[in-house]
Write a protein that binds this DNA or RNA. Structure first.
Lengths: 138, 138
DNA sequence: AATTTACCTTTAAATAGTTATAAATTAAAT
DNA sequence: ATTTAATTTATAACTATTTAAAGGTAAATT
């Protein structure tokens, strides 16, 4: 799980400026269990930062990804979701309502999958598609 | 692997018209081992069907997906790739050159992954990211 | 504390993939 | 051959994301 101060220190030590926007984005992502889109973050952050822009959100999120703090999920064809964690795990995506849930995977499974390729795998995504219980009962 | 006639018969039996464009798209996808994008298909088909449009390609591909003949891959953030097969397997994506390769998975592995969720999983994608040997040596 | 500078955010516009619409075309039923 | 309903096409619209340029700001320097 994220430690805000650690992430901010790391940003600073890499020569990045600690702007209010960056702090706000890191704080807003910290401890989340959901997988917000750029738009969700934009709406939420706009309350504290009325002038914040998508460009800032996308660039900060990209920075956090490069630093290994978050993952970009392409499970949803329509838009990118951000997952503020790096530990490998799978995701279940409901094809009707778009609900997106984390699924644990043990380290063995992760390693086995990474080793399926003869090339060196840097990261891994496992996406399960189906209907969540709510959508299935209608 | 695909059988063109079987797919065309199935289309017809479901009440879909066998248009020249649909036949051309099915024929062009048949037996492929790569994972063309809409644009690739468009360019290729344009030789035989100079008036073919993206709308036709997208709608036909969607039809084939609904009928269970092909999969839509979201491994590449930039664009959708189509995989003319339904057997579950993993994909390796080179983050530099975009090369996309099939990786075999045995049925056990597939089942184990599908069962990671307590919900009923209809389909599955496993994406491995890294650098292909060529890109790694530069 | 003021100045400077390089980086950052913002605004606005551009881009690219995909989808919607409406008119024209055509497969196939009559 | 005619009819009809589905399909294709051309065009425009749409949406998520990225880019470019102008102004703003963190933090290093004086």
């Amino acid at each position: 799980m994220w430690n805000v101060d650690e992430i901010l220190d790391k940003l600073k030590s890499k020569g990045y400026k600690l702007t209010g926007q960056r702090k706000a984005i890191v704080e807003r992502l910290c401890g989340r269990e959901d997988h917000p889109t750029a738009e969700q973050l934009y709406k939420e952050l706009k309350k504290d930062y009325p002038t914040i822009s998508f460009a800032t959100i996308y660039s900060t999120v990209q920075l956090l990804e490069e630093m290994g703090y978050l993952q970009t999920l392409t499970v949803d064809e329509k838009k990118t979701h951000f997952d503020p964690t790096w530990a490998a795990h799978a995701h279940f995506f409901c094809q009707k309502c778009g609900r997106l849930e984390d699924i644990e995977m043990n380290q063995e499974e992760v390693e086995r999958l990474k080793n399926l390729s003869k090339y060196r795998t840097q990261s891994l995504q496992v996406y399960l598609y189906g209907l969540c219980p709510e959508c299935d009962n209608r």
